[in-house]
Structure formats: structure tokens, C-alpha cells
Nucleic acid binder design. Structure first.
Length: 478
RNA sequence: GGCGCAUUCGUCUAGUGGCCCAGGACAUCGCCCUCUCAAGGCGAAGACCGCGGGUUCGAAUCCCGCAUGCGCCGCCA
């Protein structure tokens, strides 16, 4: 994989990296990470660091790359410029490149005019036939000149492992730049040099690179070297059905991590955006994905990123976790929500967590879900604290009796609590739910909570009594 | 504007000439379970397979055209 560090890692790139990774692990090949940082103005080391961290979080590791090195170092494109220059010399030797003196301004102007007149914005070839002597003269006079590749009009094709045979007419291109006037290589040329010199066998990248691949194909031929295998992945689209962009805000992997999506869920979800095993299974571990993945089952249509399905995957993975590992995963998020996790000890936290485990979709949901377990007092909504179709007075009376029972029998045995509380409801002539709801609201402040008796047990007699008494007071003021 | 790629339920998709008047999953709705909320179980609704022509005894599947969407057309990657 070869990301360019010009922003945060977004889910589209993450999927591409995943497929690369799966393919490498499945075939037993070496997985190479190369940083494409030839965009000097936009590439930033912070982005590189962040991206690598994000890959690791997803469980994607690599065999060769910056930091860890490898036989084909260096692994940053910007550090391979000498090699690119060397290969540019080779290209020059084939007579396929020439100097172009057009300034960026002139070219932009040309393009604008072409667009306005409805012509394809293609380089005119203006500098193509400048005589060798004139080239030298202008160069000596200090004029800047780029290197352009002389394109011969003909059909260019390659076999794509996902899309099949692809073909394009090179006659439509115009000569393209391979070396900038400042001496640095252009990405599309650097890639050819790097892929070849690093002995890359398989290139899996986004479909937005298809037209680059045609041009690379021509360069490979000119240099008389063999291209790698290519596979282009249909572009992941946002809800508006546009290509996912780094400028697109809510698509960075970091954001999902921060919201409490689990790496295994994100992985599983992303893998299924454009790939499936051919049967109806959907839950796949990394190892299973490696085992089953193949490029020929990658679909050729553009998938749309649908957060609801991710939510479902995440919920499934949260439910499947052991309480202990869920606890360590969730703690930072709960703390982030302003809750003093350590306050009542780990066992308390884990018991509370276990009650909410099947009720959340994201780790960040635990903050709100667990809050009532940790606050000093809850603020019950009077509307629901009062018995349905009942009065504050009778509710207060009932809760007073509940306090008595709790004080006498404790709440440490779920079945016993249920027994005596059901008994009370019967005595009162109430339906069980009519009694349980006021209790629930009194002790949690909410109508949607884990099962009542287990909640009572975790909270403990003392808290329960205190909260009930406060609710009774609130009811008496009404 | 040119070129390329794509087009099956709202979304992800199965489907490679007869098993498909199209299967699964998410979401939605209903029922069950039930002390609430979830989870779970069961069920419903939801796709004239983008449109139009062919080929064939037979097409979602093959061919052609059109439409739409996306991508690329940079001394960005």
C-alpha cells in the first residue's frame, strides 16, 4: 500500500489498505508500505505518523516500510529521488522525453481556453519539436523546463484483476510531465520507478488511478521493464454519492475510533464494502478474512458508506466481548464522558458495564448509559416517576413500602428482590410494571434501563434506599 | 467536452442462460419474549434486475444503443 500523507486516513484508503493486506497475507507475499510524499506542499510528517497509527489500530501490519526498513529501503518516495533521477536518465536515453518550457501560467491559460471552447484540455505539444540547440540555449539562459513524455497515439491496455481488460486511446492524452522543472519527479513516474525497483508484484489501488495506470503502462514499455499486476477498486462513495475525500469531514478512521467503534467491527464492515465470500456469512475475523479473501470476488460497482450497518457490526462485536476486555476498551470513553470510573472499584464498574453491554452500539455510548451508576443522585422525571394513571401520593406510599422491604431484605439477591417486590405489587393491587416503573425512574432517572433487579443489585442497598427516599420527597412536594 | 468504469430492494450485496415472478444482511414495520430499554425469535413490507432494442426455446445473466452516476483529463497524489 502506498498512501500519501496529505490528511487523515479515511475509510476508503483504509479499505484499499485492508484488501492489500489480505491479499499479501493470503498469498504469503511481503506486504510493503511506501509513503507517497512527493507532493511537497501537502505532505506532512504528522499525517504520516497518524496514518501508520491508524493502520496499526485496524490490525494491519506490514513487513517492510519506513521505521522498520527492509531490503528495498528507503520507503518514503521523497527519499528515493536519486533513483527517480537515475531512471529519468534512462528514459531520456530512449528519446521518449523532451524539455518543455511552458510555464504553469501558460498551461493553465491553455487549459482554460480549451475548456471554454469545449475541447478536451490536452497539452498542445507546443515544445515538442524545439530544436536541440534552442533547448540548450534557453536552458543556459536560465529558463525553467520540465520533462515531458512523448506519447505515441495508439491503443494502450492492461489487464485489471478486478475490472478485467481495460483499454484507452493514448492519442487522446497529450504529452505528460514526468519531471518537474525543479528537478523533482512527478508522482506518476516515481511510482513506476519505485514499483519496479522495489519489485512490487501486485498493485491494488483505487479506481481513480485507472488513467494513471494507462500512462504507467506506456512508461514501463518505454523503459523495457515489466509492470506489476494491477487491480483497481471501485471508489467508495459518501451519502451524496461522491468520491470520499479527505476534505469530507466525517470519514476519517480516527473519527470512528474516537467514537468508540472497535477495530474488528470497522475491519469487518470495510472488508464487506465491495467484497463478500459468496455465501451468507457476514461476521469475519481477520484470520477468516485472510483465508477467504480474493480479488475476483471484489465487486465492480461503487459502494456507499452506510453508517447504520457499521453500527450493527459494532454492536455485535461489543456483545461478543468478554466483560473484562470490554471494560478495558470502554474505560477511556467512560472517563471521557466525565465519569469517575475508579470511584467504586473495578468489580462495580464491570458489573454495571455488563448490564449495558447489549444495549450500546459504540463505546462512547457507555458514558450516558453508565452515568446513573456513578452520580450522587439522579433527577427523576416526575412525569414517569408517578405511577401510570396514579397519583403522586399513592406512588410515594408505595415507594415508602419499597424502602421498608429493601431495608429489611436487601437487594443482593435478584430473585428474592423480584419476589418481594412482585408481592408488594400484588398487595397493592397493581400490575408489576406499574410498581417497577416508578422504582426504576427513582433509582436511575430513566425509563430505559437494564433489568430492574440486577440494577438494584449492582447499585446496592444503600444507594437504592437513598434514591428512593429522595424520590418520595420529590413526590410529596408536588 | 473527451475518455474510462459502473448500474439488482433505501443501503451492502447473492446471482456468470433454465434452480430467480430474484436469495441474504442492515435499516423500517408487526408479532412473540418481557418489569422498561435492548438483545433474541418469528414474520411483513421493500428490486417490473436503469431504459430501449436484439440473440436464444428460455436472459438479471450474452450483444448493441441510450440514460444516469462516478472517476480521470495538473510541473497534485
Amino acid at each position: 500500500m502506498a498512501p500519501s500523507p496529505t490528511g487523515l486516513l479515511h475509510v476508503g484508503n483504509a479499505r484499499t489498505a485492508m484488501y492489500n493486506y489480505l491479499l499479501a497475507r493470503k498469498t504469503g507475499g511481503a506486504y510493503v508500505l511506501r509513503i507517497e510524499d512527493t507532493a511537497r506542499d501537502r505532505s506532512q510528517p504528522e499525517f504520516e505518523r497518524a496514518m501508520l497509527a491508524e493502520f496499526r489500530w485496524l490490525g494491519i501490519d506490514w513487513d517492510e516500510g519506513p521505521e522498520i526498513g527492509g531490503d528495498y529501503a528507503p520507503y518514503r518516495q521523497s527519499e528515493r529521488i536519486d533513483l527517480h533521477r537515475e531512471w529519468l536518465e534512462r528514459l531520456k536515453a530512449t528519446g521518449r522525453v523532451y524539455r518543455c518550457f511552458c510555464t504553469p501560467e501558460e498551461l493553465a491559460e491553455e487549459r482554460k481556453r480549451a475548456q471554454a471552447e469545449g475541447r478536451p484540455p490536452k497539452y498542445s505539444g507546443k515544445c515538442r519539436e524545439i530544436a536541440e540547440s534552442e533547448v540548450e540555449g534557453r536552458l543556459n539562459a536560465g529558463e525553467a523546463a520540465a520533462y515531458r513524455f512523448r506519447v505515441e497515439p495508439r491503443k494502450v491496455g492492461f489487464k485489471d484483476l478486478v475490472l478485467g481488460d481495460l483499454e484507452e486511446d493514448a492519442g487522446l492524452w497529450g504529452d505528460f510531465v514526468v519531471g518537474r522543472s525543479d528537478g523533482t519527479p512527478v508522482y506518476n513516474f516515481a511510482v513506476v520507478v519505485d514499483d519496479h525497483t522495489m519489485e512490487i508484484t501486485d498493485v491494488v489501488r483505487g479506481a481513480d488511478h485507472i488513467s494513471n495506470t494507462f500512462k504507467q503502462t506506456v512508461m514501463y514499455e518505454a523503459l523495457e521493464i515489466l509492470p506489476p499486476r494491477f487491480a483497481h477498486l471501485p471508489l467508495m462513495l459518501n451519502q451524496k454519492r461522491q468520491k470520499l475525500s479527505k476534505r469530507d469531514g466525517s470519514v476519517s478512521v480516527a473519527e470512528y475510533r474516537e467514537q468508540g467503534y472497535l477495530p474488528e467491527a470497522v475491519r469487518n464492515f470495510i472488508a464487506f464494502l465491495g467484497w463478500n465470500p459468496g455465501d451468507e456469512r457476514e461476521l469475519f475475523s481477520l484470520d477468516e478474512l485472510i483465508e477467504e479473501f480474493s480479488l475476483d470476488r471484489v465487486s465492480s460497482a461503487n459502494p456507499i458508506f452506510d453508517i447504520e450497518k457499521l453500527d450493527w457490526f459494532n454492536g455485535v462485536y461489543i456483545r461478543n466481548m468478554s466483560v473484562a476486555s470490554l471494560a478495558s476498551a470502554a474505560k477511556p470513553y467512560v472517563r471521557e464522558a466525565g465519569i469517575d470510573v475508579a470511584k467504586n472499584g473495578d468489580p462495580y464498574f464491570e458489573q454495571a458495564l455488563a448490564l449495558e453491554q447489549e444495549r450500546v452500539k459504540k463505546l462512547s455510548d457507555f458514558g450516558d448509559a453508565l452515568r446513573f451508576f456513578f452520580v450522587e443522585q439522579v433527577d427523576p422525571d416526575m412525569k414517569f416517576l408517578v405511577k401510570k394513571k396514579g397519583t403522586p401520593e399513592e406512588t410515594a406510599d408505595a415507594l415508602t413500602q419499597v424502602v421498608g422491604l429493601v431495608a429489611e431484605h436487601d437487594v443482593d439477591d435478584v430473585e428474592r428482590s423480584e419476589g418481594y417486590l412482585r408481592g408488594l405489587a400484588e398487595e397493592l393491587g397493581w400490575k408489576a410494571g406499574e410498581l417497577f416503573m416508578p422504582i426504576r425512574v427513582a433509582i436511575t432517572g430513566s425509563r430505559a434501563t437494564p433489568p430492574l433487579f440486577e440494577t438494584l443489585k449492582v447499585l446496592g442497598k444503600e444507594r437504592v434506599v437513598k434514591r428512593l427516599q429522595r424520590a418520595i420527597e420529590l413526590l410529596s412536594v408536588v
